[in-house]
Design a protein around this nucleic acid. Structure first.
Lengths: 363, 363
DNA sequence: GACTAAACTGCATATGTATGCAACGGTAAA
DNA sequence: TTTACCGTTGCATACATATGCAGTTTAGTC
């Protein structure tokens, strides 16, 4: 790989960045207008202003119009922070994300964000570095009096789960296991999904079956494997080879190399993530010169957008993201509304999407 | 594509979701402890509590210890919302994102989020549906008294730019053009980057050169094209063919088909995004049976993680994301700290990353 | 026109925290 | 011992809004 620095215009300022001409400054208001300012301007009480902007409050059309006009002129927007103090509702949801660069999670962030916005809530984002645990974020978000907490791809310590429950912030785990009291969860049914891949392999007549785990520790990969292996056993089959990855493309490449170098070369491999499956297909075709699915069949998990790319055309298990995020958001909002504290776990079924990285299913 | 529903355990609840057993409820505190509660418990004044949690305030070690102990016992966390009202600093940054599912932007979101967290700020996320403009989000975020606004991949109306400036919320545009007064911007130098691709093509001796635009309207694609075409002209070359895409994989596929079906078949194509370049390579290799770079060279823009995948091995222009987001975040924080209203635009140079989708550079 | 009910309005107070100010105590200097 | 000073502390108030309550206006009915 060669790296060439692109020519950059002037290059006088530090780090090669170039600053363009400044523009004329804009006059600034000394202080943001308050409801009292608007009240005075409109010749009404502060209460009237408050009620004008509170949905469903008792104000006449006449005063409402006066208030709106004055507010418009002063550039007044209700202060959501001040209002939150009194109502004890911030309409803020904390979204704690482990690895937003993972396409699966960035999609989730988007879906949650849109869903909550549509319901009048806003998302306060907490990104964790991969090796962090969530405790610091939890501590921080509690200061902002968030109405609810969505944890995805992060581990929650028992202490913090208790803290949230005690302090009244409902917590929902997304695709994580709720091991703590008072914490609900929504996740895909990894075991059943794993089993459905076993069914597919059986139907296609594979005998030397491989699995590549995504992580040695998390339950997600473990459940996919367990559902897969258990169903294989039920069908009179067994796992011939196994490798350990870390959900990444590179680890999929490495796993493919390792499995192909082993004594038993698999005729079908189930990998715990699409990313790893992409790596495996890439290595199989380009580096090992194999045909997929001619020499080896590949199945992934997630159904990332890239799965439909002709270079992969990957058979995979689709997580019903929209349904799952909708269910999670609504469950959280329901807990917020009802102060319901009972913990629930909702399992959503995955869909097996059969594409060209496995042979056609015999009729 | 066949779609098979995975078997899902019981399936008694609606939509096939399964709910697991409920757990024991956790006892809830009636009310979150306030600084006054802590003060009473510690036998000090409310001021002392406030000062204990304010960095750099005058409190003796003795009272600080008493307060900390009481706070711990009551589960007290300072209310950041209440504090924001007084200090007029919410320590919240609004991040307005157009399309977070686009990997470029999800990376940006992560980088901003981490950067601001490290500086004691938090990110309030506003996702826009692709066809929205940012006005609704701006209106909403002003209610939360955010300290600053980061707009990425969204258009800002003149009215809202004025509103933000008047109301004192510094606005920064990321990879967008600041056409409004009082609004700063950080973006990659698209023109110079386009020129560097022209340089590369000239050095490699290409004669039938193509360009695929990402959008008919936005300046990003237009600048890349202009810098590219202008430099070609300087080098005695010219654009032979051109197609119009929309930054997506599918539009890259379509563009490749269109260009190859045309009268002049290009020997090198520069596409305004990696996504389109992936589509073009995919179509060239798999559908048209071409060799890349043997029959046609492909260059993209962004340097997405997938660019290094062996199936693509894409020559592309890297946006210095980390440097750009760092610069943007610091510029915004500086504006917040100084109340500086002068608008600046910072251009960052892109790096041409030469990989295997173009032939080796002759020595 | 009188009466009743409903709709509306403003007053007063509450929310949880920051901070200027004055008071207090102790130490060091004179 | 007096004075000055600094480090602490608490009081009182401010921040911007929501809301119960009582008073006032309006509409509705006879």
């Amino acid at each position: 790989m060669t790296k060439i620095r692109a020519p950059s215009g002037g290059g006088t300022s530090p780090s090669g960045a170039r600053a363009e001409a400044a523009e004329k400054p804009v006059e600034r208001i000394g202080r943001r207008a308050s409801s009292l300012d608007v009240a005075r301007a409109a010749g009404v009480s502060q209460s009237a202003v408050s009620r004008t902007f509170a949905p469903g409050a008792a104000v006449s059309e006449h005063t409402r119009a006066k208030v709106k006009a004055a507010a418009e002129k002063l550039g007044y927007k209700p202060n959501a922070l001040a209002s939150s103090i009194i109502t004890k509702r911030s309409r803020i949801i904390a979204l704690v994300v482990g690895d937003i660069e993972n396409p699966t999670y960035s999609k989730i962030v988007n879906l949650f964000s849109l869903h909550f916005q549509a319901r009048g809530y806003h998302v306060l984002l907490f990104s964790l570095k991969s090796d962090d645990n969530a405790d610091y974020a939890i501590d921080e978000l509690l200061k902002y009096r968030v109405d609810g907490v969505l944890l995805t791809a992060a581990t929650l310590s028992e202490a913090m789960a208790q803290a949230c429950a005690r302090l009244g912030a409902p917590v929902l785990l997304y695709n994580r296991y709720a091991r703590h009291s008072g914490v609900s969860a929504v996740r895909v049914d990894n075991q059943s999904a794993g089993a459905s891949v076993a069914d597919l392999f059986a139907r296609l007549g594979f005998r030397r079956i491989g699995f590549v785990a995504g992580s040695g520790i998390d339950e997600t990969s473990r459940d996919r494997e367990q559902g897969f292996v258990d169903r294989l056993k039920t069908l009179g089959l067994s796992l011939a080879v196994r490798a350990q990855g870390d959900y990444s493309f590179a680890s999929g490449q490495a796993a493919m190399h390792a499995l192909w170098a082993g004594e038993v070369r698999p005729d079908a491999i189930f990998l715990a993530s699409d990313m790893m499956a992409f790596g495996a297909i890439s290595t199989a075709r380009i580096e090992l010169g194999l045909s997929v699915p001619g020499d080896v069949s590949i199945v992934g998990f997630d159904d990332l957008p890239q799965a439909v790319w002709p270079v992969f055309d990957l058979t995979t298990v689709r997580q019903p993201q929209v349904a799952m995020t909708d269910a999670a958001a609504e469950l959280l909002l329901a807990k917020i509304a009802s102060q319901e504290q009972r913990a629930r776990t909702i399992l959503m079924p995955g869909d097996l999407i059969v594409r060209g990285s496995t042979p056609p299913i015999p009729a």
